[in-house]
């Protein structure tokens, strides 16, 4: 089911020709639902979990979930994209939190 979309946070990137997630997904899997004005995932089975959409979303409305067939409920991994760094906050199924931060560009 990756990624899931928080309808309270997603605003469909109002005013843009395409949503950020739709623009970046390498599988052309994200699109805008014209009736709800929110992004949606066309086909969960085709998602690679590359997290490009999650990194691109300016409103943190997307969250990658591991399909339950593969991993248990519920863990989370959230990227916080900085200028030349990225910070990842990970929480495992027992609630243990870990933070990783590293440079992803030479400043």
């Amino acid at each position: 089911m990756p990624p899931i979309i928080d309808p309270n946070k997603c605003n469909g990137c109002a005013g843009r020709n395409e949503t950020f997630c739709e623009e970046i997904c390498p599988g052309d899997l994200m699109a805008l639902d014209a009736t709800t004005g929110k992004a949606f995932l066309r086909s969960a089975r085709d998602c690679w979990d590359c997290m490009s959409c999650v990194k691109a979303c300016p409103r943190n409305a997307l969250e990658t979930r591991i399909p339950y067939q593969l991993g248990y409920y519920k863990a989370s991994l959230r990227p916080i994209v900085g200028r030349n760094t990225i910070t990842w906050k990970c929480k495992d199924i027992y609630g243990k939190e870990t933070t990783f931060k590293f440079a992803n560009r030479i400043a």
């Binding site: 979990d49 590359c50 997290m51 591991i66 593969l70 989370s76 991994l77 990970c90 199924i93």
Partner: peptide
Amino acid sequence: PSFVLFLAS
């Protein structure tokens, strides 16, 4: 990155 999420899951 999602492999780290998998391990957490």
